[in-house]
Simulated assay, not measured.
Amino acid sequence: MTIPEAARVLAVPESWLRERVRLRRVAHRRLGKHVRFTASDLEAIVDGAAQHALTPRRMAHQWRRQG
């Protein structure tokens, strides 16, 4: 999959994806000068962007630090 195709699947701007590739922050394949993505690369990008919910204990700990 090309950068424009992968960006559409991920629902992100092409520029965002190109920048992450340039910085080597997302999984991708290089075939010469061409960048390609596999389905597992896209899954890794999504998994890497996951935000974990705070547990009540963690939330209480954060409130104590702020107050």
Rank of each mutant, 00 (worst) to 15 (best):
A50L: 08
A6P: 14
A7H: 00
G32E: 11
R29S: 15
R18A: 07
H52L: 11
E5D: 11
V9K: 14
L54R: 13
V35D: 04
I3Y: 01
T55Y: 13
A50M: 06
R24F: 02
E14P: 04
T38C: 04
D41E: 00
T38I: 02
A11Q: 13
R25G: 12
A44D: 09
R65M: 07
M59V: 14
M59K: 08
A6D: 01
H61I: 01
A49R: 12
W16S: 13
H52Y: 11
A53N: 04
A6W: 07
S15L: 08
A27W: 01
V26W: 01
R64Q: 15
P56T: 09
T38Y: 02
R24I: 03
L31C: 03
R24Y: 05
G67I: 15
R24V: 02
T2N: 03
L42H: 07
T2V: 03
A49G: 11
R65Y: 00
R57C: 00
R20H: 02
R24G: 07
K33T: 02
M59G: 10
W63Q: 13
W63I: 12
A60Y: 03
A11F: 14
R58K: 10
H34Q: 14
V21N: 04
V21F: 08
A11W: 03
I3M: 03
S15G: 03
H34N: 05
L23H: 05
H61D: 11
E14I: 13
R64V: 10
L23S: 06
R18W: 03
M1I: 10
L42F: 09
G32D: 06
G48T: 09
A44H: 00
V46A: 07
R65G: 02
R30H: 11
V21T: 11
S15A: 12
T55A: 05
E19H: 12
E5M: 06
L42S: 06
L23E: 08
E5R: 09
W63G: 10
A7Y: 00
R58F: 01
H28K: 08
L17S: 04
R18D: 01
D47G: 08
L17R: 01
V26S: 03
A11E: 08
H52P: 10
T38M: 05
R8T: 15
D47W: 14
H34P: 00
